[in-house]
Design a protein around this nucleic acid. Sequence first.
DNA 1: AATGAATGAGGTTTCATTCAT
DNA 2: CATGAATGAAACCTCATTCAT
Lengths: 196, 196, 196, 196
Amino acid sequence: MNTVDDSARRRELRTAAARLFRKVGYPQATVRDIAKAVGMQSGSIFYYFKTKEDILVDVMNEGMRQFLEAARVPMDDAVHPRMKLRTLLVRHLMTLHQRNNDELAVVLSEWRSLSPRARRQIVAQRDEVEAVWNRVLRELADARLISGDIAILRLAILGAANWSVQWYDKKGKLSIDELADQLLDLFVPISARTAS
Amino acid sequence: MNTVDDSARRRELRTAAARLFRKVGYPQATVRDIAKAVGMQSGSIFYYFKTKEDILVDVMNEGMRQFLEAARVPMDDAVHPRMKLRTLLVRHLMTLHQRNNDELAVVLSEWRSLSPRARRQIVAQRDEVEAVWNRVLRELADARLISGDIAILRLAILGAANWSVQWYDKKGKLSIDELADQLLDLFVPISARTAS
Amino acid sequence: MNTVDDSARRRELRTAAARLFRKVGYPQATVRDIAKAVGMQSGSIFYYFKTKEDILVDVMNEGMRQFLEAARVPMDDAVHPRMKLRTLLVRHLMTLHQRNNDELAVVLSEWRSLSPRARRQIVAQRDEVEAVWNRVLRELADARLISGDIAILRLAILGAANWSVQWYDKKGKLSIDELADQLLDLFVPISARTAS
Amino acid sequence: MNTVDDSARRRELRTAAARLFRKVGYPQATVRDIAKAVGMQSGSIFYYFKTKEDILVDVMNEGMRQFLEAARVPMDDAVHPRMKLRTLLVRHLMTLHQRNNDELAVVLSEWRSLSPRARRQIVAQRDEVEAVWNRVLRELADARLISGDIAILRLAILGAANWSVQWYDKKGKLSIDELADQLLDLFVPISARTAS
DNA sequence: AATGAATGAGGTTTCATTCAT
DNA sequence: CATGAATGAAACCTCATTCAT
């Protein structure tokens, strides 16, 4: 990460862009808006990013990096598979609802604005995250704790979790741990809850 | 519904617009694209719609109308509340995954593109749908079949259901009934399933 | 040539563009300038041309078409080869110095501004013109009226002729016929002038 | 020629600029391109040149200086006028086709990019060159070796010679001496070649 | 002597919209 | 009903230029 690739100013721009992209959407957020948000002229943006889409790619890469970081937790083999899934879920939801985490919301909503080339790059990272979830779900299936297609189950769990970005309010009554447990109960039925 | 308000041509335009809005997003779908999809020139669109946003409003109104239609099912008071919720859920998911039902996908993804004025109008309809769900959830709460904040529960259920628009494939193994039951089990725990 | 490909307005734009390209050069001629020259707004240009480069391509195609027209004169086999060359030269110079023939000047000076793709297309037309000249020069060589490399000779003749665009004034003393004869004498020496 | 006016670095910049101006044209050559060619940042250029146009003026001055140097050869009055013209022509062509002599090509092609003020300065130098040619052509006319308007003849000779910049390849078969002789024969007809 | 950061004017292009026909 | 032509505001982006360091 040299000065241009991840300078403080570039980070500042990425953050401001993420907030705007989340708020009004990537296509409606103008380069001028982003520049104004950090007190720049619009032309100056292009000292840091080659194109507007590059800003989006940078935002989404950062978002994906955080998702990956949440998924890449070292887990003791001895831990019960259901507990492993719970850990993944809690870390995923925590990452999602941290303060000002606009990058993650953008990852979930703006993939349509990516060029095919950039999309491939982001999808590759998403696949990495899903591979981690698949591994844990495979363990649960091997232990007969879940049944059915693992892929669909993964989509359902991550989908339900990700949708919370649209309504979950971390100042509300429901804690992230509680939300995680509720979702867990849905997909890994209670009767399976033995040694957690 | 006079000739101008809902002529065959106008419906044709709305359908084409919905498909485009879903595929590339409202801001990226140009009036020219929509016109070309029905074999028109872009200028002709404005004989049917005053502005581009009016097309979006029309699409979303139609989407909301369908959601409302799904929610407004006459239900015998004698029916078990859990069964009532199941009926709502099945009808909601059916509506969502019918063929070419792009209006609904647009309702879920493009509310950011509405002006405040139009948004208020759409939100009013959404509130109507939610009121129906709230009534049924209230019955479930009164019968001690669920606990917690009804609003949050409603958001969670509808959220999980709506997210399926991003992954559910009606040609796949999972039937809509099965999906409904899985979701139902999540939010109205199995132990509560007594007299359904 | 349908309405959009060669409408009066499109021709008008091409003519105005050619004049500007010749006067200030393609890169310095702005789309706004061209539009203003025909009393339009800059945005309107793009109803007729997809890009600014397309205007240049259109201008150069028209220029090349005229060069080709000048070269494609039916010639009786019995005519003396030197006379054939003179005909080519006169027609070429006439075409070059007709009134307002800015397209031709642009062909000669703006090839650097073409993208590789467009350049290939223009070069193909130029090759057609050169083929005609080569044929006549071949006849002269076969009749021992000239010696040396035909390609270099062609370049020298056309070069000297084309350079005249930078200085020849048709209102001056030198007529185009006289200019043609002077050039002819240079490359097909006088001693060879027998039956012309 | 103090340190700022003709330092090694400044010469390096001029050379790099000349190459770029020739290759892509002055308007398309960016200051960044020029800077990169000598391993500088674009801002640093302005330590050596006040404006981008000043670079062009410097390049063209250098080009003109070389043309003048070619023209300013001391010539014995006793030499035959036709031989004097040949000397001018050979030196002119040699100067034109020396290795990396991009300044000269730029002189011939980029005069349109000069401001009126700068143009006047360059034109003044060009006039000096032309004066030398005129003097020799006058001698030829006085000796009845040529006829017609001297100015037009000069334009034709220099034009044909200068056009060679677009096609002459010094690695090809035609030597510069041969080219000079061919051109000479054109404008000072063979029959006049008596005492050379 | 040189740089890195930033400017701001201006370029090409897009696109919703208008309107005479 | 529908079109073809045109608009004009605003978008993204470029680039010569400045200036503190």
